[in-house]
């Protein structure tokens, strides 16, 4: 079985993770299935008392949005940083 993650390309696009903390229920899907280990469960709690993921390695994010696909609470997503294309 191959991993679900997108294979890192040779020139990985840098990305960024966004978290809507109030929606998080602390399931840690995003942490478990982030292919580049950007996230880790930390000690912080949201207003409902759920443990939140911490962005521990932001430089590793490639914006693949696997966190967004997995997150059952619509609380996190990843975005690829904009790259200049030819002709732009």
């Amino acid at each position: 079985m191959g991993t679900e993650a997108e294979k890192e390309s040779s020139t990985p696009a840098k990305g960024q993770v966004y978290i809507e903390e109030d929606l998080c229920k602390g399931c840690s899907f995003c942490v478990a299935f982030c292919p580049t280990d950007v996230l880790a469960m930390g000690g912080r709690l949201n207003y409902k008392g759920y443990h939140l993921p911490d962005i521990v390695a932001p430089e590793k994010c490639n914006g693949c949005d696997m966190c967004g696909l997995y997150c059952p609470d619509f609380a996190i997503f990843g975005v690829r940083s904009k790259r200049k294309k030819k002709g732009e």
């Binding site: 229920k25 602390g26 399931c27 899907f29 759920y50 696909l69 997995y70 997150c71 059952p72 609470d73």
Partner: peptide
């Protein structure tokens, strides 16, 4: 939403 933490329904909605 009302679904529990770790429930898979939300993932399917994504």
């Amino acid at each position: 939403h009302i679904w529990c933490g770790g429930c898979g329904i939300g993932t399917s909605v994504n």
